[in-house]
Computed example of a mutant assay.
Amino acid sequence: MTAEERRGYAKGRAKRREILDHAMAMFGEAGYRGASLRTIATRCGISHPGLLHHFPTKESLLLAVLEHRDEVDGEWMSLGSPTGVDRLRRMADLAELNAGRRGIVELFSVLAAEATAADHPAHAYFVRRYRTSVEGAVLAYGQAHDAGALRPGIAPEVAAQQLIALMDGLQVQWLLSGCTTDMAGVLCAHVRAQLTVPF
């Protein structure tokens, strides 16, 4: 690859990232159905055909936005390979991180509600995401149980579903409260009450 080709490739990647950032904001503001590719293109300073060069359909853009968010958060969640109580703590830390990313929280909350419709392009994505989120929490609670850190009577499967539901519900409350709800604080208090060790 020549230096000129490398520059072109880097420029293309930067433009793709810019499109994803603007699309993330637009989907958060207007939802998937209300967002317009032409408006996203205008915000990026490119033509509608220019946007379609990077993302040929609105569905492909939406899925790229969702996958990008998961990739970034997944890498952060896996740093140091936390398990058990440490993994649960990292989930609470994610709530703290999200408190500084209103656009992403808004996007997720709007799309998760829209995607309950079976014909929504992100329906399969959210079904899969909730399944893997609960499975990850079940694993963390199971590891905490095996380490003797979980209070008697706390079932990892039930606790995992409660935790994911609490995380999502807190995000909606946080958005509606003008971002004043202490998502991480409430989440920590919930998990702390389930453990026999400091959290």
Rank of each mutant, 00 (worst) to 15 (best):
H68S: 15
A159C: 13
K58E: 06
T57W: 11
G31N: 11
M91V: 14
S36V: 04
L111H: 13
S36I: 03
A165S: 09
T180D: 01
A137S: 10
L62N: 00
G80C: 04
W174C: 02
V127G: 10
I46H: 13
E135V: 09
A25P: 01
R151T: 01
K11I: 06
E18T: 14
H54C: 03
L107A: 02
E29A: 14
M1R: 07
E114P: 10
H53G: 02
I46F: 11
D21S: 08
L94M: 14
M24H: 05
I40K: 04
K15G: 00
A23I: 07
T180I: 01
A113T: 12
L195A: 07
S177Y: 09
R17M: 04
L66C: 03
G8Y: 08
G45R: 08
G84K: 10
R192M: 00
L97H: 15
L195H: 09
P82H: 05
T116C: 12
T2I: 04
G74K: 11
H123V: 05
G12P: 01
E96I: 11
R87Q: 08
R192T: 11
R38T: 14
I19P: 00
A115R: 04
L63F: 09
T57P: 06
V158K: 07
S36K: 10
I46Y: 12
R131T: 12
G185V: 11
A115Y: 03
Q194I: 00
E67A: 08
A149L: 11
S78E: 15
L52N: 12
A193P: 00
S78G: 10
A95M: 12
M91K: 13
E157T: 14
V197L: 02
L20D: 03
G28M: 00
G136S: 11
T180H: 07
R13T: 05
D93G: 12
H22Y: 05
G103R: 12
T181P: 01
T57Y: 08
R102G: 10
A117F: 05
R43G: 02
V172D: 04
S47H: 09
M24I: 01
L176G: 02
F55W: 00
D93H: 11
G178M: 07
H48N: 08
R69M: 12
R151E: 04
Q143G: 06
A112C: 09
L163G: 02
Q162C: 09
T181N: 00
R17S: 08
R128Y: 02
A140G: 08
G142L: 06
G100Y: 04
G100S: 06
R33W: 14
D119C: 08
V186D: 05
D119S: 13
M91S: 14
S177G: 08
E59V: 04
E96T: 15
L66H: 03
E67K: 15
